[in-house]
Amino acid sequence: MSSIRMKTCAMTAAVAALFLSVPSHAETEPETTDPIVINGGELELPTVAPAPAHLEGVFDQIYSGWLFRDAATQAMQMDDFENPGMIFVDQGIDDWNTVEGKAGKSCASCHEDIESMKGVRAAMPKVNEAGDLWSMEDYINDCRTSRMQAEALEWDSDRMKNLTAAISVQSRGMPMDVAIDGLAEPYWEQGREMYYTRYGQLELACANCHEGHYGDWIRADHLSQGMTNGFPVYRLKQAALVSQHNRFRGCIRDTRGETFDMGSDEFRALELYVASRGNGLPVEGVSVRH
């Protein structure tokens, strides 16, 4: 009896150690790093890239979250028809072309075909002319309120997610390349600070899971490196598009912590820092995760 109890204690201690410390080499590398072949070869998205310079000593390689999913979920992203996120891209394109607001304009009135948005997603979030860090949602709402004279959309509303999805898809395959220097630097520093700050009763920082334990089990699931190049994602659990800030909110909530609001300055800064960790991975939006 006592030997069993001792064993149990030792195991509990080991489990606790896994969660409370950040061993430098606890991560598990993906077995393969095959590209995501879309529509039978129309487009190939690499799933691995050399880590950006600012991650020197942290990661050698950065990986798409797609590698950490099971075959059925992976397959859904490999065909634009089977990818349920694409219906919302269609809805976003419809919205792009719909006139709304007192100015009698649609997005297309100024920007013409949505293909003109190619490259936008790869550089988001980005410091605007006034020196503020803006997410794509901010740019969309600025156009809506100032140029279209329409109401701003809620950050996590279906219409907003449909639009960000439709705009993201235009950059699919382009490497993520957010600016982190110059005016962006203080925001990036703020985001970096948050990434390594332990939140909640579980006292977990982003890094505890996504840097120290990617590839490892978390309950019946595998952790990824927490890259954001696939956002907005179609998440099978919600059977809906999920925005980056919603995912951040969920992660902090899961630490049993008070979370920040979607569309808060804190999450914009975190969005920039996390995006910069994925600089070099292709825009996958709209990806499929579970």
Partner: peptide, 9 residues
């Protein structure tokens, strides 16, 4: 709301 069919033939 927002019911939209997609068909691939």
């Amino acid at each position: 709301d927002n019911v939209k069919p997609r068909v691939r033939v």
